[in-house]
């Protein structure tokens, strides 16, 4: 019904096709819900900039990570801008644009934990928190079968349980964990554990915009828009608000 009304409205006023963009809103500093309920973060700015670039009016739809691919498939939205890595596994179900950023991944734990992920069996029996249905879950399952993996609906919840001491480590992407947790007041006493890592087989080609399979026109338009934002300096302008380094990757 809402779609019908929206469609009728579009026909009546503007020929432009309005895009619904799924975002998560629980992944600071990429995507977070501020105290007044509005969405802020790198992903949010990026989504708006991409829409502007392709000349479409966008509505951001906040969807839990768990349901974000299903929401795309069921046309609750037309694109996902949610720091989603473009992986082989996900490509079975949806299509991705070119990447819009790529960062390594890491474990975070208490600064004095003394845990060494590189040592053989170094994580055996440790409790590691990860967001359900992410590359991070897949990475730990593949490389650390001896780990007791606890799955959370959002990264925020995993961080809460790390600070309460229920879990030993959390796994996630480096920038998100550093900027969203370690370098904030809540992250005092916590630090990266071990080296950063990137396994192309699992981590794919970096974070990209997800679209439905067959939406090639939209996919190509958005891919071109990402490059255009890089060229125009708009990308830098946005990322400077959040990060000290260039997160686009090589």
């Amino acid at each position: 019904m809402r779609n019908l009304i929206a469609a009728a409205f579009c026909l009546a006023t503007t020929p432009a096709f309005a895009l619904n963009v799924c975002v998560e809103g629980a992944y600071p500093p990429f995507s977070e819900t501020s105290a007044d309920g509005s969405l802020v973060g790198f992903d949010i700015d990026m989504a708006n900039a991409l829409c502007e670039q392709v000349g479409e009016t966008c509505t951001l739809v906040k969807v839990d990570w768990d349901g974000i691919i299903p929401a795309l498939l069921e046309k609750k939205c037309d694109a996902i801008v949610a720091s989603m890595s473009s992986t082989e596994e996900r490509k079975q179900v949806i299509d991705f644009t070119a990447k819009y950023y790529q960062v390594p991944n890491e474990f975070v734990g208490r600064a004095d934990s003394g845990i060494d992920p590189a040592a053989p069996g170094g994580l055996d029996g440790k409790v590691v928190g990860a967001q359900r249905g992410t590359i991070h879950q897949a990475y730990v399952e593949k490389h650390y079968p001896g780990v007791q993996l606890t799955l959370y609906g959002s990264q925020d919840e995993a961080i809460l349980d790390l600070t309460s001491g229920r879990i030993d480590l959390i796994v996630g992407d480096a920038i998100q964990l550093e900027e969203g947790f370690v370098n904030t007041p809540a992250g005092e006493g916590y630090a990266r554990v071990g080296e950063q890592f990137f396994d192309p087989e699992i981590h794919g080609e970096g974070a990209a915009v997800g679209v439905r399979k067959g939406d090639t026109e939209l996919r190509d338009k958005l891919s071109a828009a990402i490059l255009a934002l890089r060229e125009s300096g708009k990308y830098d302008e946005i990322q400077k608000k959040y990060f000290k380094i260039d997160i686009y990757g090589s």
Partner: peptide
């Protein structure tokens, strides 16, 4: 919702693993 794999937890894990709705 507090990480336990009960019946609903199993359902959510299945959904997340295969991107099912």
């Amino acid at each position: 919702v507090i990480t336990l794999q009960d019946i609903l937890g199993a359902g959510r894990t299945l959904n997340a693993r295969y991107y099912l709705a």
